[in-house]
Amino acid sequence: MSSPCDPQYAAVGDVSTALMMIDSRLKAIYDGKAGTDPEQQRMIDQFAASVSPEEFNELLDGACTLIYLFMNWLRTACEDHGKDVIEYVVPTLVATMRMMPKTFRPEVIPTMAGLLIAAGSGLSPNLWRAQYGPWTDAEMNPLEATVTLLAEHVNRMSGDDHDFATRLITDALSQLDQG
Rank of each mutant, 00 (worst) to 15 (best):
D6Q: 09
L26M: 13
D171L: 06
H153T: 13
Q46Y: 11
M99Q: 14
E139P: 12
A113V: 00
K83C: 11
D84V: 09
P53W: 07
G120D: 04
S2M: 02
T92I: 12
G159F: 11
R129Q: 15
V51M: 01
V108C: 13
C64F: 00
S24P: 05
A77W: 11
P101W: 09
P134W: 02
D80A: 15
V90D: 00
S174H: 05
A118V: 07
Y68R: 13
L176T: 05
Q8S: 10
R156Q: 15
P7D: 08
E139I: 11
G62V: 15
W128I: 03
E55P: 09
C78D: 11
L173K: 01
D177N: 03
F70S: 08
R167W: 12
I29W: 13
V85A: 15
T76P: 04
L116Q: 00
S24K: 02
D137C: 13
T92R: 02
G32L: 07
A165P: 08
R25D: 00
L115P: 15
F164A: 06
D171G: 05
S2R: 07
Y132A: 07
S174W: 04
C64A: 12
A63H: 08
Q41N: 08
C5R: 06
P106I: 03
V94Y: 00
T92N: 01
A119N: 08
M100N: 14
V15I: 15
I117M: 13
V15W: 02
S158Y: 15
F70G: 09
T92G: 04
D161F: 13
M140F: 10
T36R: 12
Q41T: 05
P91D: 06
D6M: 08
F47K: 07
